[in-house]
Simulated assay, not measured.
Amino acid sequence: MAKSKFKKIVGWLHLWIGLVTGIVIFIVSITGCIYTFDQEIFDWVHRDIVYVEPENTVRPLSELLEKAKHSLGAEKIIDGVQITSPEKAYVFTATRVNDVANINLSAFSQYAYQDQVYINQYTGQVLGVMDMRYEFFHVVELLHRQLLLVKPVGSVIVGGFTLIFLIAVLTGLILWIPKNYKQLKRNLQIKFSAKWKRINYDLHNSVGFYVIPFAILFVITGLVWSFRWWELGMYKMLGEKERPSFFRTLPPFQGQDSTLNKTDVIYTELLSQLEGTPWRQIGIVFPTEENKSVLTVVITNNNDGWRGMNYYYFDGRTGKLFDALLQHNKSLGIKWRNSNLEIHTGRIYGWPTQILAFVASLICATLPITGFLIWWNKRRKHLRKKPPYRSGNSILSAY
């Protein structure tokens, strides 16, 4: 009797949590599904500005930076560059967060500008400039993370609904647990020869079971961007006492020329540090008057199962390397944090895990729909069984 009552409570929780969170979970899941192959689709659609014909000589980075500045105008500040492969153009970025007075509830109000400049590193030609605020996959990401609302509002709403969705997943698992072997076989199968109501039930019950590990993984990795306390909890679980800082203090300045024009010196030194190391991507954050250090992030191929992300810190005034945080020296917590996005999107091990993430996200998007249809069909059946009552000359259904 107690077991039956427990199952009823669990079933009630599963039902109403599913109904309350359904729309948000559908939006988050379907946008996550679309975002899984964002880079591949973006590169293909914009191949005319993304890909270049490799040549023997690459123009100096400082020259390319000047061309990027000229293409955007003096009012926009270039803050970094992304370098990937010899077949892809250099991508210079210019981002500025809007003043508080100009930010409203819309996610699009968060940035005054957010541009990318694509430059052929061999010829110096500006291939194209994109306003990333309204680029399709960026909008998909904003919808996925913030429901197109400003981050302090949207990310909390998404995080809250995602956390509640985790309860729905766990209660669904409890309800799925079979009483015997016969029910186990039924719970693991989809009877496509049955009527659509049974097929819909099997899609929710059976396919939902298979996707549970992925759904839990999506929740665990996704909540990191919504709640600082969740991120800190993950760090502590992995052995960190506090949230690590990636900021480094500049050493005392010794020299005469303190101007921040050491781009070529820094890039040359970085390439010498990477000699013999297979790298996939270089990201350089240019120095400003407020922050005269240069943070360089290099994505490398590695064999430890995590995303290989190495940090090199340069003094923007002298161009000298003064610190580094390399993959083999990082703690488990930092390795996880650097890999969290790739785990969340399925990119961690390439196409196989991306396909798994795509399919799992698509199934998660169907669960609110199939669950709603199960509830709706049961509700209609229940209403049909209720006896009508007379009121004057009309017969009204009892609700």
Rank of each mutant, 00 (worst) to 15 (best):
V207H: 04
L373M: 03
T296N: 02
V207A: 14
H46Q: 15
G319R: 01
V153R: 00
F209Y: 09
L64H: 04
G319P: 04
T84W: 00
A365E: 02
V150Y: 13
V224Y: 10
Y235Q: 11
V28Q: 03
Q327V: 13
E342A: 10
D115W: 12
S109R: 02
L149H: 00
N338S: 10
I83G: 00
H70W: 03
G392W: 05
F218Y: 12
V129M: 06
M1Q: 06
K7G: 02
G308C: 01
W336M: 12
M237Q: 09
V91W: 02
K88I: 03
Q146L: 07
I78F: 05
P54C: 15
S85Y: 04
Q116A: 13
I395P: 02
P368I: 05
L383N: 01
V52C: 13
N338K: 06
L223D: 09
D257G: 03
Q110L: 10
L396T: 11
G319W: 02
Y312P: 02
L64M: 15
T300S: 00
A168H: 01
I27V: 14
I157E: 02
T162L: 14
S109Y: 06
E63F: 14
S272F: 04
V126M: 04
G255H: 09
F161N: 01
S4K: 07
F37M: 14
V139E: 04
L61T: 15
L217G: 03
L175T: 04
Y210I: 15
Y399E: 12
K292A: 06
F247W: 07
N302W: 00
L184A: 10
Y311S: 03
D264L: 08
